[in-house]
Amino acid sequence: MELFLIAVGAALVNNVVLSQFLGLCPFIGVSKKVDTAAGMGGAVIFVITIASAITNLIYTYILEKLDITYLQTIVFILVIAALVQFVEMFLKKMVPSLYRALGVYLPLITTNCAVLGVALLNVQKSYGFVSSVVNGFGTAVGFTVAIVIIAGIREKIEYNDIPESFKGTPIVLLTAGLMAMAFFGFSGLIK
């Protein structure tokens, strides 16, 4: 039950993009089409879940054991970078179909501050292994939900008559703002 609450909280109540502003870059950059957005979302779910698990293990069994938790930022970012490369190579060799679906998005993920953000938040909230993974998964699902919704809206507003200076990024941001307001509705979901 508690795990379920963590997942829902991470996905809807404290949505990474809409309330924490993490991962804004791909949110705006890769949300032109629903297909690509869903692909990006899938890749993010994949990487964040694995990254949460690995950073948690490293934090508990290496950094804490050696009493060097102050190195967490530098270790996490390197681990995430290496992980993304590794996942990419692994998928290319072992699961080519999945690689074809997610491949393009993988390199873009390292820079997605949501990954590092989740790893750091897991530590800050002193989550255990399972809670960390669940929190990471929930966060990534929240990202996917947000990016797919906005891509859907963008496909529609493409044909609308938008004031010239609002074309492009501004209208996307306005839409995102309205979505953020809608997501406020979830804040009562969990006490």
Binding site: S165, G168, P170, G177
Partner: peptide, 25 residues
């Protein structure tokens, strides 16, 4: 209050870019 909440950030930024576009245009 909406301006200091999350949606406000999006709105402010959207207007900022729009103004910038306008100037360039």
């Amino acid at each position: 209050s909406i301006l200091i909440l999350a949606p406000g950030a999006f709105f402010v930024l959207a207007c900022l870019i729009a103004v910038q576009n306008k100037v360039k245009l």
